[in-house]
Amino acid sequence: MNDEPESGRRAAMKFSDDPGASRATWVAAFLIVVLTAWFASGLVWPSEAPETEQDGNVQAPITVAVRDSTAEMITEFFVAEGQAVADRDTTIHAETSGDILDVAFDKGDTVSAGDVIGRFDPGHRTAELDRAQAEVERAEREFQNAETLFARGTATEDRVTEARTALAAARAQRAAAEQAIEDTMIRAPFDGRLEDVFVDPGEFFSAGAEVARVVDLEPLTVRARVPQQSLRSLTEGQAATVRFITGETREGIVRFVGASADPATRTFLLEIEVENEDGAIPAGVSTEVSIATGEVAAHFISPAILSLSEDGTLGLKTASDDNAVQFHEVSILRAESEGVWVAGLPDTARIITIGQGFVRPDDTIDPRPDNGAQLAETASGPIQ
């Protein structure tokens, strides 16, 4: 226990007793004065405000890259998807009823017009023809006798007329019997390929039943649909290139352009005739049709620089002579591996290739030649 008197204790030290305390106070006060003066300087001497469109001033030009482009004359093509179809495709129907006697061709065989594909058993039809032939011979003798007697004056003119009528009836009956025999023959209606044969020897078929199907692939017909806006550029007789999905490419001629639109699609039928003498191209395969429709001035560009207007119109932005942005509506004419050909630009144009996303029509720009290098960032942001 400390017995030292209370008055003799050492007094506790305070921060104000430190000799450097007053110096820190003056430093803090000085900093407050400096900061206050710096904030107030903006009120006394305001800095120049950037020019903005709200003040009615022109915004600082935005740096963009441009490339000079000159239009070239290229061939414009109408291109459409199509399908190859047989020039003629016919199902043969039985002309009579009866049993099939024999079949001369198999499915897949090539036939010529008039070839007998198969026959019905003629049966009683042969006997009918023999009877009709005998009746014709008898009627001919009667007619000759009537004419002889009439010439001698021993027969009347009515007898000659009756004999002539009987002869005509006999000949008609013979013709019907001959046709009945002909109807037993199943003949090819034209040159082609037997796509199917539905009959076998011994089978019974009724008149009107399907017995065979013949297709004609020479020439081949390619059908496509034409939209309304392309109809005027197509005429009969134009040359066409047809690429088949099987890999072949053939030249053809436009044979038919429809004059009445399909009510459902508002498109018109287009038919192209393609030579197919070897029969290598089957009917039904998909095709791509390409028809040259004329020449047009076009620019070759990268599709990456195409833009859309506020209403969704496809176009390109260019720099005018006074360095203002212009928007031109364009249409793509042809696509290639390295770019696309577009129409709608002037013959010569300064196309904005970098920075088109940062500018709008009528904006003032600072165009720089596009040398393939990335431009530096501008006050409005990086050019992309």
Score class of each variant (00 low, 15 high):
A29G: 08
G98M: 05
G315N: 09
A379N: 03
R138E: 08
A65E: 04
A209R: 13
E377Y: 04
D87G: 10
E95Q: 14
T364C: 01
G312I: 09
P227S: 10
A94S: 15
G82R: 01
I352E: 00
D3F: 06
A94P: 01
P303R: 11
L375H: 10
R368V: 13
Q144D: 12
I117Y: 02
P189C: 04
V257I: 07
G82S: 03
A49N: 04
D363H: 08
R368M: 09
Q384L: 11
Q173F: 12
A180R: 12
N2E: 09
E236K: 07
V274G: 01
T318E: 02
T161S: 13
E162H: 07
V257F: 03
H93F: 15
P219V: 11
A163G: 12
E162S: 10
A170W: 02
D321S: 12
R213K: 14
R138T: 11
S69A: 15
G237P: 05
G355D: 06
I301M: 09
S69N: 14
A240W: 09
S307Y: 02
A239V: 12
A343P: 00
N323V: 00
A304C: 04
G355F: 05
F143D: 00
E48S: 01
L333A: 07
P46T: 08
Q229A: 10
F143R: 01
A146P: 07
E182Q: 08
D102M: 12
P367N: 11
D3A: 07
A324I: 00
G82C: 04
A259I: 08
F327W: 07
R250Q: 05
I354T: 10
A11H: 09
V44P: 01
S22D: 12
N145A: 14
G202S: 05
L129M: 13
G247V: 03
P122S: 14
G208T: 10
A259D: 11
N57S: 11
T90H: 00
T90Y: 04
F300W: 04
I354K: 11
I365G: 00
F15H: 10
T235C: 06
R213Y: 06
G372V: 03
T265C: 01
G202I: 03
Q374K: 15
Q228I: 07
T91E: 13
A40I: 12
K317P: 06
T70R: 14
H328Y: 15
S380L: 12
P282A: 02
N57Q: 14
H124K: 09
A177V: 05
V211I: 15
A280N: 01
A280I: 00
A177L: 02
A373P: 00
T246Y: 00
G118F: 01
E195F: 03
V342F: 03
V257E: 01
S286C: 06
A29D: 08
A376P: 12
V64Q: 04
Q228H: 08
F150W: 02
S112V: 00
F39E: 11
A139T: 04
P61I: 02
F120R: 02
D321K: 08
E147G: 00
Q326S: 05
M13Y: 14
F15M: 09
L333Y: 05
T353A: 03
S22G: 15
E178F: 08
P361E: 11
D311S: 14
K14V: 09
T165M: 11
E288I: 11
R119M: 09
T313S: 13
Q59M: 09
A94K: 02
A261Q: 10
V214H: 01
R360F: 07
E277D: 10
I383R: 11
A11T: 11
R88G: 00
L269K: 14
